[in-house]
Design a binder for these strands. Structure first.
Length: 931
DNA sequence: TCCCGCTCGTA
DNA sequence: GTACGAGCGGGAT
């Protein structure tokens, strides 16, 4: 998976506004303040930021301003810029507005005392070069042309005439390449900046001299060869001035960056601050582009169309009015019709698809048909696997499945045709089974998740309702429900066409609406760099499945059953009679009423709590029944949820268990796993760990497990910028021991355990009450520990404060890769809801960044393994911070090396972390032995 | 037959 | 205190 190259745009704000002032009419804003230059500047920024995600558009952006009139150049030459006239009166009030405008776009505005804008720009260009990024300087300043470098992808953009300035342009202007521009400028001098240069030497002569002799020093050294007497004299007399000029025009490029490169990531333009600014200034024409009610799909791809529909943070957009005409849908049952649809998709360059099957589980499902949509209301359904509803109904006439798939394959794999689906992973797996590798693709479910996690459901029907106020035909209404439910292959073709074609139709319209929002709302980075490629990565994993030893599980089930029965007897004996142990209501009654035990805690529903903490307490007080119930619960849980359920999940064809990973299952960006959930296989207790031993490798293979060590704490150290924690991770120290030392001044079993709890509490959005409860200490002590933590690691407090301030203002958080999670409850009036949202918001950037990282590793894994000649190593499962592989015996070491390096480098090159990512690798015949 | 709350397995 | 999914009991339907 090739990483899209970062592209930094550096806007030379000061020089822009001078030029805009002179070239644009003298407008005033709503307050009567001159604002012509600001208006031009605003329009320009808009245009630039709109280029996000377009070819050669910015991924990172900053506006650079001159902070001070003095720089190191004044120390070299006191006359530097000395005869520059003061800015015109009606330009002066516009300077601060430039900063306001930049902030309105949520673009970083960088200025540094003692450094001129040109120098700051040079520093960033060099840093971008070192990082392998491209950079574009938005300016036409000739001094900056020294930085142009075609090979490194460094160019300039003059937005006044939309001209790219590259090496060829520089050569055209100066007659020499960028590396010699400084020498030419030194000879020429500059009257505006008061760079002296050499009298009598203008651009022509300067160029000629540098072309002839190579550089300024050589010109001055060869002055004897110069034939023109006046020129010779001037060069001789003003040699020192020339050398001074050379230094004056030399750009400083090694100063520390005021803001790290990564912080300049362009994440789209949050609409609200911009709207406020435009309203305040009374920039009506720009405001109309934001404030109109045009939907995103009404032609415009600019962020403004989208911003229009997003009136406030965390407020879902107004639905767009659409008309769905299902009568236009076509049932395709002839080759001619199929060919026509394929040609149409080709002509459009994109097609929405949806596969219909006889079963919700795509691993075992059979294809019933495929729907296509090329335009709103222009959709078809191609049945290929329909059968009669019962023995009395005949199988409908339809094209042969193989023929349809053979004809669709070139289209679905055509690099020039974008395939769009909702929950493409399902269709991807279905089609992969037919030997079709769908590409390129977009997934509207993933798009919706990347835009609206935390504030929307992402089902197609939900989204149709939300975005279009349209009710899709319910699956229930075509297939029925419950015992009378039929599979889709039994649905009559007319009803099937309406249902299936509508899904493709709605999916296409949804894509039209969501696609521009990704760019406008900063979703494209995470979508393109993390989640979109993951669809295929996960699809492959799901198809592989993992081998499970059925006989072993059956044996375990038997053992558990015997032990459960024995425990049941003992419980009844202790309780003085039989009851349903699995019923918390009955258990509570038995313990606190029949046995008359004290201290029963009741929950919201007025029912006694019988959870593990309560039963542990009773057991500690010597209540046999409580201890016995705990043992009974453990075994029942293991048997019903794991040993029994897992056997039933083994696919008869493959002998393996194929989980389904949900890409939109967790609001933080984590995956979730269902049917079965393979992300909660026991490991903590010895007896539970036996379940893990049931997950085995094929003969001749081993299972290899690689997991990130302490990844969330490492990310917290990086994100909150905690020097001690970062240093400890770099040094490979025991992080909890180090925390214990900081918090309690001593390290032993007890303090280290407490410190560990505190460290986790931090990640979960700490509260004194919660920490006290967990540590079993009074609330005040919990608070004291937290206060101490914050005073030892002030970065943590700042991180929490900043995160909360951001989420309160914007309604969402972001991970380091830009993933948004929305928190509508952050402003809830109910304090419990609000506090809960706050804790989740503190956790989301950390948990989410961790999820982004492992997803990036997964996307790169197969390629890296193949490149290392390890094409038979198969990635099977992801468990949040762990990846599990099936490895041919003999390739363990080589595989471990590749896996470790891909995981450790998952942040790069988009991001450089201040902490190393440690990966622990182990392998064995079964999962339990791989840790 | 469906849905909710409880409990408990994981990171 | 974060993030999930599954099985069970039990009441509503």
């Amino acid at each position: 998976m090739a990483e899209p190259q970062n592209h930094l745009y550096l806007v030379d704000g000061s020089s822009y506004i001078f030029r805009a002032y002179h070239r644009l009419p003298p407008l005033t804003n709503r307050h009567g303040t001159p604002a012509g230059a600001v208006y031009g500047y605003t329009a320009m920024l808009w245009k630039l930021a709109d280029g996000l995600n377009k070819a050669d558009g910015p991924t990172h952006m900053a506006v650079i301003l001159d902070a001070s009139s003095k720089s190191h150049r004044n120390a070299m030459y006191d006359q530097y810029k000395a005869n520059r006239p003061p800015p015109p009166d009606d330009l002066v009030p516009q300077f601060p507005l430039i900063r306001t405008a930049t902030r309105a776009f949520s673009i970083p505005c960088i200025e540094e005392e003692g450094l001129e804008a040109d120098d700051i720009i040079a520093c960033y260009v060099m840093a971008a070069k070192r990082a392998g990024w491209k950079a574009t300087i938005v300016s036409s300043d000739k001094d900056l042309m020294q930085l142009v470098d075609d090979e490194a992808g460094i160019d300039m953009l003059d937005t006044m005439n939309d001209r790219r300035i590259d090496r060829a342009y520089v050569e055209g202007k100066f007659g020499v390449g960028p590396e010699k521009v400084g020498d030419v400028l030194a000879l020429m001098g500059d009257s505006v900046d008061n760079v002296p240069g050499v009298p009598g030497v203008g651009p022509k002569t300067a160029t000629q001299l540098i072309q002839q002799y190579g550089d300024l020093d050589k010109v001055l050294a060869s002055v004897g060869e110069i034939s023109k007497p006046k020129l010779k004299q001037n060069l001789t007399e003003h040699a020192d001035n020339a050398r001074l000029s050379r230094e004056l025009v030399r750009l400083v490029c090694d100063a520390p960056l005021p803001e790290p490169l990564e912080d300049l990531a362009l994440k789209g333009i949050p609409p609200e601050p911009l709207r406020e600014f435009l309203e305040d200034q009374g920039f009506k024409s720009l405001l109309n582009r934001v404030g109109g009610s045009r939907g995103a799909s009404s032609g415009g791809n600019s962020p403004v169309d989208v911003m229009a529909s997003r009136p406030a943070p965390s407020t879902p957009a107004e639905p767009e009015k659409i008309t769905v005409d299902r009568t236009q849908y076509e049932t395709v049952t002839s080759e001619e019709a199929l060919d026509r649809w394929i040609a149409e998709a080709r002509a459009r360059g994109l097609v929405a698809i949806d596969t219909e099957t006889d079963c919700i589980d795509c691993i075992i499902a059979n294809l019933a048909g495929i729907s296509l949509a090329t335009e709103p209301n222009r959709a078809c359904y191609i049945p290929v696997g329909h059968i009669g509803q019962d023995m009395l109904t005949e199988t409908p006439v339809q094209l042969a499945k193989d023929l349809v798939l053979a004809k669709l394959k070139p289209l679905l794999e055509d690099p020039a045709v974008l395939k769009i689906a909702h929950n493409l992973k399902y269709d991807w797996v279905m089609l992969a089974k037919a030997g079709i590798a769908v590409a390129p693709y977009d997934d509207t479910l993933v798009m919706s998740f990347d835009l609206d996690a935390g504030r929307s459901n992402h089902g197609l029907d939900d989204l149709a309702k939300q975005h279009f106020d349209h009710e899709c035909i319910a699956f229930k209404s075509v297939c029925g429900t419950g015992a009378k439910q039929i599979s889709f292959d039994k649905v009559p073709l007319d009803a099937a066409t309406e249902y299936a074609a509508e899904d493709a139709d709605i999916c296409l319209r949804l894509w039209q609406r969501l696609k521009p929002r990704l760019a406008a709302e900063g979703g494209n980075r995470v979508y393109e760099m993390v989640d979109r490629p993951l669809v295929a990565s996960i699809g492959k994993m799901e198809r592989r499945g993992i081998k499970v030893d059925r006989d072993y599980l059956a044996q375990l089930s038997g053992t558990f059953a015997t032990e459960i029965a024995a425990l049941e007897e003992k419980v009844f004996e202790a309780a003085g009679g039989p009851f349903t142990i699995g019923s918390p209501a009955q258990l509570g009654h038995v313990l606190y009423e029949r046995l008359g035990l004290k201290g029963g805690r009741k929950g919201k529903s007025g029912q006694y709590s019988t959870d593990v903490t309560e039963l542990e307490r009773l057991a500690g007080e010597g209540v046999d029944a409580a201890r016995l119930v705990l043992d009974w619960r453990q075994l029942s849980k293991l048997k019903s949820t794991y040993t029994d359920a897992l056997q039933a999940q083994i696919n008869p064809d493959t002998g393996r268990v194929h989980t389904s990973f949900s890409l939109s299952g967790a609001q933080t960006g984590r995956l979730s796993s269902t049917e079965p959930n393979l992300q909660n296989i026991p490991i903590r207790t010895e007896i539970g760990r036996k379940i893990r031993d049931a997950f085995v490798a094929e003969p001749g293979h081993v299972l290899l497990s690689a997991d990130y060590s302490q990844i969330e704490l490492r990310l917290a150290a990086h994100m909150a910028d905690v020097p001690q924690l970062k240093e400890a991770f770099r040094a490979g120290e025991d992080i909890h021991a180090m925390t214990a030392e900081e918090l309690f001044g001593t390290v032993d079993r007890d303090t280290r355990g407490k410190a560990k709890t505190v460290n986790f509490a931090i990640l979960y959005g700490i509260s004194s009450w919660g920490l006290a409860g967990r540590l079993g200490i009074p609330r005040e002590e919990g608070k004291a520990i937290i206060d101490r933590y914050f005073s030892r690691f002030p970065g943590i407090r700042t991180y929490i404060d900043d995160t909360l301030a951001f989420v309160r203002e914007h309604g969402f958080t972001r991970t380091l890769f830009g993933r948004k999670t929305h928190f509508p409850n952050i402003r809830a009036s109910n304090p419990n809801f609000r506090a809960s949202a706050e804790r989740a918001a503190i956790n989301a950037p950390i948990q989410g960044t961790s999820a982004d990282l492992i997803k990036r590793a997964m996307n790169r894994m197969d390629g890296a393994l193949a490149e290392a000649g390890l094409g038979d190593v198969r990635m099977l499962l992801q468990v949040h911070d762990e990846l599990l592989f099936e490895v041919p015996q003999g390739q363990e070491d080589a595989a471990a090396k590749v896996v470790r390096s891909v995981m450790a480098a998952a942040a790069e090159p988009a991001l450089t972390l201040d902490v190393p990512l440690d990966v622990e690798v182990g392998w064995g015949a079964h999962w339990g032995a791989a840790h």
